[in-house]
Design a protein around this nucleic acid. Structure first.
Lengths: 152, 152
DNA sequence: CTGTATGCAAACGTTTTGCATGCGA
DNA sequence: TCGCATGCAAAACGTTTGCATACAG
């Protein structure tokens, strides 16, 4: 287990763009790193605020936005009014996964099974789309909607 | 071309649930039908309002929500702050498709090629997930993110 | 005639912005 | 020191809700 805090793996990415390493940014990334879940900005803010009460919600939004544009974080909109964020591709992070969303209770479940076939499909499709539309594909999302066990 | 206005294909669906056929609902569905695009609630409202200025934004939201719950409309959240709506599976409608979203200019492109392989993949995966998580899957969405031709 | 559907205005929750201050490099 | 980064408060935005009225069945 390497990432206990100040792992430098993301500092390089930030400094490479001229961005500064600050306490709020360190804390926000650490929180994302320790949370295996799709968290909202408010979720991050609450946890950050518990540790360092001087951090403001605005900074959380701005940091998440910056990380999203750098490709360090992926932003999701599941249709419940608030955006969710997840670290992507980080060394200690959880596996690539997709989502199962209950239309009634809005629960979001992750699944990471059956990814071998998916990877194959995604790669093939991305390649064809990329060529046909001259589109540089950097990411993708697959979501299934329906009714969860409790709601059906 | 069948659907010029009062096509009854959706009236049955509505009446089957006890919902009433009203002028605002007819108009909203007609607008969705004539629009091959992923429209926001405001988009629908503007067009509806041009035709019948007595229609309110609230009714547009409530109607789109009702149609979504009936499965007549699919609601999308692409992360730009407003939800988009599309008619799904209607007789004259366009083919099932997925989305290519530019992270810089937020343009949303549809693609409906390569769906044969996709259908196979989706069916297989949905079946497995359904069994494993006891989840009743009714819909799915696949989106690719990246940079469009103009932005890269 | 009954109850759903509607429009308006106001409320709501999330996200963004303006501005003065703080602090990393 | 210089300018990006921050926090606060207020604004902005999309969406939802309360309520009295209209109208489909």
């Amino acid at each position: 287990m390497r990432g206990r805090g100040r792992g430098p793996w993301w500092q390089d990415r930030l400094q490479g763009t001229g961005a500064r390493i600050t306490a709020p940014r360190e804390l926000i990334i650490e929180i994302l790193h320790e949370t295996d879940d799709h968290v909202s900005a408010a979720d991050v803010y609450i946890r950050a605020h518990q540790i360092n009460p001087s951090i403001g919600l605005t900074t959380v939004y701005r940091t998440l936005d910056m990380l999203t544009q750098l490709g360090i974080v992926q932003k999701f909109d599941f249709g419940d009014g608030k955006a969710r964020y997840e670290l992507v591709n980080n060394p200690n992070g959880k596996k690539h996964h997709h989502h199962l969303i209950c239309l009634r209770c809005k629960t979001i479940m992750d699944y990471s099974e059956f990814l071998d076939e998916e990877l194959e499909f995604v790669k093939k499709t991305a390649g064809k789309l990329s060529k046909k539309y001259n589109f540089e594909i950097t990411d993708h999302a697959i979501s299934f909607y329906g009714l969860c066990e409790r709601c059906r």
